[in-house]
């Protein structure tokens, strides 16, 4: 027998022990939190928040985490902030129709140095309002989203998108195009794009996406060597897009 066993045996023989049955030990552990709540209620100081905190505290203790109640409060606060942030972000994105407008690019686009691909040449033309109608319907309107920059500053990408928006609206009329970076209006088609710095030049690409079914309607791109050519590239991209949505 080691010292532990001998000591226990001595305590037992001296009748100093008061053994508590195993089921009572389990009962104490399982009901500790509930009893605490009752005591706090009877003392008139119970609140839902404190109830939550104490439940978490007793749970952590039970599984062997020696945390203090202050640490438990920190854990609870951080968890609540994370949950609230995710919920808010999720609701916001849902509200913006992010998921309905999300593009699933299933088409592998192979483009040359400079080119335009009409992905739906026959069928999937953009709906137009009737010939007698002068007003632009929402489904005809093109919404220009902020351009993405790859290896270029975000401000440059935004500037590129704005430039295309300006040129496109000067060709088609300002009512036909809306710049989502600056304002909101309903639109049936999204114009998305990017400016990417490659080894020795820039590639500006743009694509028209049908908001209803997320399909790419049209794709075009321009390659330039220096940013001095940006204006010209944007002009030719805008012209091609204007032709497509005419």
């Amino acid at each position: 027998m080691n010292n532990n066993d001998i000591l226990r045996e001595l305590i037992k023989k001296s009748r100093l022990d008061k053994p508590v049955p195993a089921e009572v030990q389990a009962h104490i552990r399982e009901n500790k939190g509930r009893q605490f709540k009752k005591i706090m209620k009877k003392a008139g100081v119970y609140s839902v928040l404190f109830g939550l905190l104490s439940n978490l505290f007793f749970y952590l203790k039970r599984i062997g985490f020696g945390v203090t109640i202050v640490k438990t409060a920190v854990i609870l606060t951080v968890s609540a902030v994370i949950i609230i942030s995710f919920t808010t972000a999720g609701l916001y994105l849902l509200g913006r129709g992010y998921f309905s407008g999300k593009i699933q690019e299933k088409v592998e686009i192979l483009d040359g140095n400079k080119g335009a691909i009409d992905l739906f040449p026959a069928g999937n033309k953009i709906d137009k309002a009737g010939p007698d109608s002068d007003a632009v319907s929402d489904s005809d309107r093109v919404g220009v989203q902020q351009f993405m920059g790859v290896n270029v500053p975000a401000s440059r990408a935004a500037e590129t998108g704005d430039l295309i928006y300006e040129k496109l609206s000067s060709i088609t009329g300002s009512d036909r195009v809306v710049n989502f970076r600056k304002g909101r209006k309903k639109a049936g088609v999204l114009l998305m794009g990017s400016i990417e710095y490659l080894n020795n030049g820039y590639m500006i690409s743009a694509r028209l996406v049908n908001i209803k079914d997320s399909k790419i309607i049209y794709y075009t791109s321009e390659n330039i060597n220096t940013l001095d050519e940006l204006d010209r590239a944007c002009q030719s991209i805008s012209s091609r897009i204007a032709e497509k949505i005419k």
């Binding site: 022990d17 008061k18 030990q25 552990r29 500790k32 952590l60 203790k61 039970r62 020696g66």
Partner: peptide, 16 residues
Amino acid sequence: AIFNFTYEEAAGQLGF
């Protein structure tokens, strides 16, 4: 030692 709790039970009670 006095109330004869198992090590497991004592751990669960005290957060060890």
